[in-house]
Each structure stands twice: as structure tokens, then as C-alpha cells.
Design a protein around this nucleic acid. Structure first.
Length: 359
DNA sequence: AATGCGGGGAG
DNA sequence: CTCCCAGCATT
């Protein structure tokens, strides 16, 4: 108890300098303009494990397509996935729709305004509940993301592994004692902003620009290369796949991926495990009832997911009639319609050009 | 506590 | 190449 008391006291000193710095230096971002709960929510979900620059191209389009909780609750899944196409972690948008439906049922379509109620929503954990509470409603709850873990562990000079949830819990508890009730949003956003543009994760932090450098143990003792401590991720599993662009002159074969697992519910070109030769592709085509008129090898491609690596080889297979296939689940769609209506993950980007689809 | 889940930018 | 990002759900 004595220890935490001292820590909290130290951290209190950063509050005013940090809030002042944030108000002076914050970036002009779309979701900071009119931070009502719905807008903050959409932005926070998009920003989970995703860089600001990546989100910029999606945010306004999503809000324009689905301006209210009700619109989101009632949208077709394929429309959601199309709006999310290329952003990754597609369960985020499905969970967001479930949450919207929860809000329609439990809160009459009005986004809830207490931390506890917000935390109950699908896809919203401690960080996002804190962020929405503080940014939209000024509620003094912590919003501890990767930036904050890094910033706080550097300031306090902590060598604890920031991947452990016990460490995150402790930082949340500490911060909760420190958040100013009259500037909860600017304080929380200040911590995050500091981590994003000064106390950066890659390369040397810009300590000379830091408003709290005099309170930072890592800065003063030159420990920023060793703090934060973070356990290494596991190595990825490598999978060979052969991607097949079946076309009959005007249409392309695609199919919907299973509802669970990797890239759930998205559309893909037919593909099989392993690295097939041209003869094997011809053979395979016949087994599914398709008569190849011409088979052409396409360039190899690699796509890296967080836990899997796809090493792909591709073939363009011109067939006489796509409808002859006995494969269930194949869809025969014009490239232009695929481009407009079907969400195809980035993993297939190398091959979309050969299918006549441009992003 | 460990694992699954995307994609891309920086060094 | 490696690291890691405005994380969460499931097991």
C-alpha cells in the first residue's frame, strides 16, 4: 500500500503538463471533430491494433454509409464486410453490429453513457470502454492501450512484461487514482498521443520534445531501449496454397469463406492446399467438372497474417463454361460487381488484377 | 494464461 | 527480416 501511494503521487505530477501539451500539440483527426459516443466508438474499434493512417480511409465512408446505431444494427453482413474490406480483424465489425443490436434492445437505440453499460457491449473491452467513457462523456476512467503501457512503464521505470494482463490491471488501477475529473478526455488522449508521436514504439523516442521528461525514469536513466519489456510473439506457421482464377470469358468464380475462423465470411478465389503444378491444376479442374481451355501460371505471392504465413502460387484457368462445375458454393460474378459488392481480403491482392478486379 | 484473428508501416 | 500498432473473444 505504501508503494502504490508513492507511485500515484509521482504520477500526479505529469497530469497538468501532459494535458497542456496535448491541447497544444494534438493532431487534427476526423474522429476528434464531433466526439459523440457513436463516432468515438466507430473510431476506437477501427483503431484497435490498427494505425491512424490506415483508419483514415475508412472512417468517413463508414459513418456516411451507417450514420446511426440503428443503421448499423440493420445492415447486411456483406455490406459491413465491404466497408471493412482490407482493414483486417473482421470480427470487429460483426461484434460492432451485435453491440448495435444490443443497444437497440436494451437502450432504445441510444448509446449508453456509463462505463459499466458500455463495457457490456460486444467487442468492447477495458480499453475501449474507458476511451468512449472519457472521450465522449468525460468520465474519469482509464484507457490503457499499447501506447499507454509503453509510456507509463517508461515513466515509472518498470521492467515488468507489458503483455501480462496483471501489469495492465495495475496500470489501470494506478491511473484511475490520477485522472483529473475535469480533463479526463484530454489526459487519456494525451497519454495515447504522447505514445504515438513522442514516446514512439519504433526507433528512438523523441524525449527532448516530451512534456514530462523530467518525471520519466527511462529518459533520465537512458533506459528507453530496454523499456518497455515485452515477450516475443510465437513464430508463424507457413502454409502453401494454390490460388485459382477460373474464368469463362466474362465471369470469375469466387466463393464465401466459412463463418468462423480466418477471414470468416469474406470472399475468395477458389484455392487448395499445397503447391500444384500446371498439370495438377488441369486435373483438379476436371475433377470439379470444369474443362480448362487454357491454364496460365501466375506469379507467386506471400501474405503474412499475425499467426500464419501463406505462400501462394496462382493459375489463371480459362474454362468453357463455369456452370459445369459440381462444386457447391462457387459463385460466378462479373469482375465489376465483385469490385463493388464483394469483400475480398488483402491476401488475394496479387491476383485480383488477373481477375479484372481493381481496388 | 494462451491462442486466434489482418494488415501495413517503420527501422 | 522484426516489431508492433487507439485489443477483444474464446478456450
Amino acid at each position: 500500500m505504501k508503494n502504490t501511494e508513492k507511485k500515484d503521487e509521482d504520477l500526479v505530477k505529469i497530469v497538468q503538463p501532459l494535458v497542456d501539451w496535448y491541447r497544444e500539440n494534438k493532431r487534427d483527426l476526423p474522429w476528434r471533430h464531433n466526439p459523440d459516443a457513436y463516432r468515438v466508438w466507430i473510431s476506437e474499434i477501427m483503431l484497435q491494433q490498427t494505425r491512424v493512417e490506415a483508419v483514415k480511409g475508412y472512417y468517413d465512408r463508414f459513418l456516411k454509409a451507417l450514420p446511426t446505431v440503428k443503421d448499423l444494427a440493420e445492415a447486411e453482413e456483406d455490406k459491413l464486410l465491404k466497408l471493412w474490406e482490407g482493414l483486417g480483424y473482421y470480427n470487429r465489425v460483426r461484434n460492432m453490429q451485435k453491440a448495435a443490436q444490443q443497444i437497440m434492445v436494451d437502450h432504445e437505440g441510444i448509446f449508453p453513457d456509463t462505463y459499466e453499460e458500455i463495457l457490456q457491449l460486444k467487442g468492447i473491452g477495458n480499453y475501449t470502454a474507458g476511451a468512449i467513457s472519457a472521450f465522449a462523456y468525460g468520465i474519469p476512467k482509464p484507457a490503457v492501450d499499447g501506447n499507454v503501457l509503453r509510456v507509463i512503464s517508461r515513466i515509472t521505470g518498470s521492467y515488468e512484461d507489458i503483455m501480462k494482463q496483471s501489469v495492465r490491471k495495475k496500470i489501470e488501477n494506478t491511473l484511475e487514482q490520477v485522472i483529473p475529473s475535469d480533463a479526463a478526455s484530454d489526459f487519456n488522449q494525451g497519454l495515447i498521443e504522447l505514445g504515438a508521436i513522442v514516446c514512439v514504439p519504433n526507433g528512438e523516442p523523441k524525449c527532448e520534445e516530451c512534456p514530462v521528461k523530467e518525471y520519466c525514469i527511462a529518459c533520465k536513466e537512458n533506459l528507453t531501449t530496454e523499456i518497455p519489456v515485452k515477450k516475443k510473439a510465437k513464430t508463424r506457421k507457413i502454409e502453401e496454397r494454390t490460388i485459382l482464377i477460373f474464368k469463362d470469358g466474362k465471369r470469375i468464380a469466387i466463393r464465401k469463406r466459412p463463418a468462423k475462423g480466418l477471414l470468416a465470411g469474406l470472399y475468395e478465389f477458389p484455392n487448395v492446399e499445397g503447391k500444384l503444378s500446371m498439370d495438377e491444376v488441369t486435373e483438379y479442374s476436371k475433377t470439379i467438372g470444369l474443362m480448362p481451355v487454357r491454364v496460365q501460371e501466375l506469379p507467386e505471392a506471400k501474405h503474412i497474417f499475425s499467426h500464419i504465413e501463406w505462400h501462394m502460387t496462382g493459375y489463371e484457368v480459362i474454362v468453357d463454361e463455369l456452370e459445369k462445375t459440381n462444386e457447391k458454393g462457387f459463385l460466378f460474378i462479373h469482375p465489376e460487381e465483385i469490385r463493388k459488392e464483394y469483400s475480398i481480403p488483402s491476401a488475394f491482392e496479387k491476383y485480383t488484377g488477373y481477375a479484372g478486379i481493381e481496388r
